[in-house]
Amino acid sequence: MKRLLLVLLLGILAVTAYTFCKSWSLPDFPDSPQYREGKFRNALPKPAMGLRDGLEIWWAFLFNKPKGTVPDHPIPVQALDRTTLDAAPDRSLFRLGHSTILLKLRGQYWLTDPVFSERASPVQWMGPARFHAPPISIDELPPIAGVILSHNHYDHLDHAAVMKLAGKTARFIAPLGVGDQLIAWGVDAAKVEQLDWWQSTEAAGLRLTATPGQHFSGRGLGDSDRSLWASWVIQDGDFRIFFSGDTGYFDGFKAIGEKYGPFDLTMIETGAYDQRWAFVHMQPDQTLQAHLDLRGKWLLPIHNGTFDLALHEWQQPFERISALAAAKNVLVATPMMGEALDMQSPTAGTRWWERVQL
């Protein structure tokens, strides 16, 4: 046990040192209402977590992990190829894993928070590993009109994926500071646009608006909350989609719904939750309420089914949000990874996660 503790401690120290060495100076954003005293802030202050609480959470992750947080058998994935994508109708959607969504809009392709690496981690020799391979590789993807980024955490901003996508992507649209990270990595600055909350841009016939979220940011020791986090409103004419990124529940959903709703589809995080960090990750009942606040028609639960990032069973997010939505007569779509979803005529899909347990 002592040797295991030592190995884990050394691993944590190595990752910390690595991320510290890989950090860089980000600019200040004095014109942003969200930026105060050198950091971005939520509308409400984040509750402080004491040292004991933090250590208890680390201990639970390292030594008291409950059974079932990782599937015992491979989860079903529907493989994709270029022919399948091109044959899909406009306004189709494909889940590629976690919060990575491939959208087909106006005959062009968009990606949200593309993560294709094996691990959601600063290093690929430790950290949360994928439950499944991506349904399609970056090499097989068609040209991408735009990548939409919500924030810079490792399960949403994948350095290797960004660098591989850079050559085939026309635009990278990100919150303040995240775009600077991309440029520092070597992405052509002419391709990068970064927005503050409530700012909009137009690209390939779409209107994209960065909207508030309740979260935090950072990839190392020196950049905590130095870049912004955001949700996104995607408008294709009168067709409207909401992408939550990562967020706790807050009254901003009502404000977004009043200004931009109703939404044909909301893609909202439902996974990696716990009451101890509910301020930054919603519980399933809060996901449902956020969808109602947004005045959404169909709900697509995301941020699940790919990485082990919490202490709940891996399939629990699907089960809980499905039951809650059914009780409120809310329409929920749960496609398999890689399965096409027609956003204009969605279907609920099968309860595919139940087959993994057989």
Rank of each mutant, 00 (worst) to 15 (best):
Ser99Ile: 13
Pro122Leu: 03
Leu176Glu: 09
Leu176Lys: 12
Gly186Val: 01
Ala129Cys: 11
Leu195Thr: 00
Ala160Val: 07
Ile136Asn: 01
Gly97Pro: 02
Phe116Glu: 00
His159Ala: 15
Thr100Gln: 03
Lys168His: 10
Lys168Ile: 11
Leu141Asn: 03
Ala174Lys: 03
Lys104Ile: 08
Thr100Glu: 11
Ile148Cys: 12
Ala145His: 08
Tyr154Val: 06
Pro142Asp: 09
Leu141Ser: 06
Leu141Cys: 03
Gln108Cys: 14
Gly179Cys: 05
Ala160Ile: 10
Asp139Pro: 09
Trp197Ala: 14
Arg130His: 02
Phe131Arg: 03
Ala129Gly: 05
Pro122Thr: 02
Gly107Ala: 05
Ala120Cys: 00
Glu140Asp: 15
His98Cys: 06
Ala189His: 12
Val162Ala: 05
Trp110Gln: 01
Lys168Arg: 12
Thr169Gly: 09
Pro135Trp: 06
Glu118Tyr: 09
Glu118His: 14
Lys104Cys: 02
Pro114Glu: 03
His156Trp: 15
Leu182Asn: 12
Gln181Ala: 14
Gly186Cys: 08
Gly167Ala: 15
Lys168Ala: 14
Asp158Ile: 00
Val178Trp: 11
Pro134Tyr: 03
Arg106Thr: 14
Ala145Arg: 06
Leu96Gln: 03
Tyr109Gln: 08
Arg95Met: 11
Gly97Val: 06
Leu149Tyr: 09
Ile136Gln: 07
Glu118Asp: 07
Ser99Arg: 14
Gln181His: 15
Thr201Asp: 07
His98Glu: 08
Ala170Val: 08
Gly179Ser: 10
Val123Cys: 02
Ile183Tyr: 12
Ser137His: 08
Pro143Tyr: 07
Glu202Ala: 11
Thr100Phe: 04
Arg130Ala: 10
Trp125Gln: 04
Pro134Met: 06
His98Leu: 11
Phe116Ile: 00
Gly127Lys: 00
Gln199Ile: 09
Val115Thr: 10
Asp188Glu: 15
Ser117Cys: 01
Ala160Asp: 10
Phe116Trp: 01
Ser121Lys: 02
Ile148Arg: 09
Phe116Gln: 01
Ile136Glu: 01
Ile144Gln: 04
Ala170Arg: 12
Thr100Leu: 11
Ala161Glu: 03
Arg119Thr: 00
Gly167Ile: 14
Pro143Ile: 11
Gly179Ala: 06
Leu105Asn: 08
Gly179Glu: 05
Asp139Phe: 13
Leu111Phe: 05
Arg119Leu: 01
Asp113Asn: 13
Asp188Ile: 05
Pro142Gly: 05
Leu157Trp: 09
Val187His: 02
Leu141Asp: 11
Pro175Leu: 04
Ile136Ala: 07
Pro122Arg: 06
His151Arg: 07
Leu105Cys: 05
Ser121Arg: 06
Phe172Leu: 10
Thr100Val: 07
Glu140Lys: 15
Pro128Val: 04
Ile148Glu: 08
Ile144His: 04
His132Ile: 05
Asp196Thr: 15
Pro143Glu: 13
Leu96Thr: 05
Trp198Pro: 02
Lys104Ala: 04
Ser200Gly: 09
Lys191His: 12
Trp185Ala: 13
Leu149Ser: 09
Leu165Met: 04
Pro134Gln: 01
Tyr154Ile: 06
Val187Cys: 11
Trp125Thr: 09
Ala166Tyr: 12
Gly97Asn: 15
Thr201Ala: 09
Ala189Tyr: 14
Ala166Leu: 07
